[in-house]
């Protein structure tokens, strides 16, 4: 054991150290990247008293097993899953005090795809433009690999006797927080008019998530609206969440790793909240798109951000009182 706290990775399959994304990237030609379920990532950091932009672990599709060298404070959020410490289950979406040498197993249930693990004090990892978010295009990032340790900035003394469990912390988190709905809210895209009446069928049809999903995009099978306007489209910046209708029988939903420009018209755009939902969709899952307005989407988004503010405040208050 070294003086510097470490999180030893006993097993990991598809996990990375990430953060909320490289927000200065798009203006310099790079994708924003970062945690695909932004709410879950923000919540994990809030629950351990970290800054919202602190690095944390994102694991996709597969669980992982971790063992800290020192006492640490962790939180697991995202895809519904119960972390287990030395084989004993503990609730997700709440702070979890882990002793040095204990084994933490984070599973991913069938109800979601991605889980987030934040550790109080966060990870010491390289950054580019202020962000540690992996970018597969430029081969930047910190993978989480079996057998390798991750450096932590701080340890954290045990907060509570775990016999009292999670009841010590009540941060007012709704019980259904990790539930993944099958409906994605979208706002008409800037090029929606080019699709004429085909746009309405986007909302009347059912779609199936294909196996072709990653951090760049999500392909969904179903009715593909066709442009009525002919001609090439000039390359323009496309937002994360843009729904494009390339030729073929699949819609493409752009995720945070997307190239920042494209020459396809933008049919509709997922709301920020729907982007978090999309991050948790699994192949084969059936979904629908539901039309909403930017005003309604912003109201829903701000409600979630205020919930995060309350969680962060309560966490900081609780830790200050306990330490």
């Amino acid at each position: 054991m070294t003086d510097r706290p470490e999180l030893y990775v006993e097993s990991a399959t598809a996990a990375v150290v990430t953060d909320l994304g490289r927000t200065r990237g798009p203006s310099r030609g790079l994708a924003v990247n970062g945690a695909l379920d932004q709410f879950a990532a923000r919540a994990a950091n809030a629950l351990v008293g970290n800054a919202p932009t602190d690095p944390l672990i994102e694991t996709t599709g597969f669980g992982l097993t971790l063992r800290p060298s020192h006492d640490v404070l962790m939180a697991v959020t995202g895809a519904p899953s119960e972390p287990a410490v030395d084989g004993r289950p503990y609730p997700a979406w709440t702070p979890l005090s882990v002793r040095a040498g204990e084994t933490v197993r984070v599973g991913i249930s069938d109800a979601g795809l991605r889980a987030y693990v934040a550790v109080h004090g966060s990870f010491d990892v390289p950054r580019l433009m202020g962000s540690c978010a992996p970018d597969s295009m430029i081969e930047f990032g910190t993978p989480v690999t079996s057998g390798a340790p991750l450096s932590l900035f701080r340890s954290h003394p045990p907060l509570v006797n775990r016999r009292f469990g999670a009841t010590v912390f009540d941060f007012g988190i709704p019980r259904d927080i990790g539930r993944v709905p099958g409906v994605l809210d979208v706002i008409d895209g800037p090029d929606a008019a080019e699709f004429g009446s085909g746009l309405q069928r986007l909302f009347d049809s059912r779609y199936t998530v294909t196996p072709r999903i990653n951090h760049v995009g999500l392909r969904v099978a179903g009715y593909v609206p066709r442009r009525s306007a002919p001609g090439e489209v000039l390359s323009r910046g496309v937002p994360v969440g843009a729904i494009e209708a390339p030729t073929g029988d699949e819609l493409l939903v752009l995720m945070r790793g997307r190239g920042i420009t494209a020459g396809y018209p933008v049919l509709a755009v997922l709301t920020s909240r729907a982007q978090d939902v999309a991050a948790q969709l699994r192949p084969g899952q059936e979904i629908r798109f539901r039309r909403t307005t930017a005003a309604a989407a912003t109201a829903a988004y701000l409600e979630r951000r205020r919930l995060l503010d309350r969680i962060a405040l309560r966490a900081r208050t609780a830790f200050a009182a306990l330490s």
């Binding site: 927000t23 798009p26 203006s27 323009r236 496309v238 920020s272 912003t298 701000l302």
Partner: peptide
């Protein structure tokens, strides 16, 4: 400071966090 812009030929994509800035 959180507002960022992606300029191309005839358009700018302006990205923002609705928590800090409104359309």
């Amino acid at each position: 400071p959180t507002v960022s812009a992606v300029p191309t030929y005839d358009a700018v994509l302006v990205e923002f966090d609705p928590y800090h800035a409104t359309a």
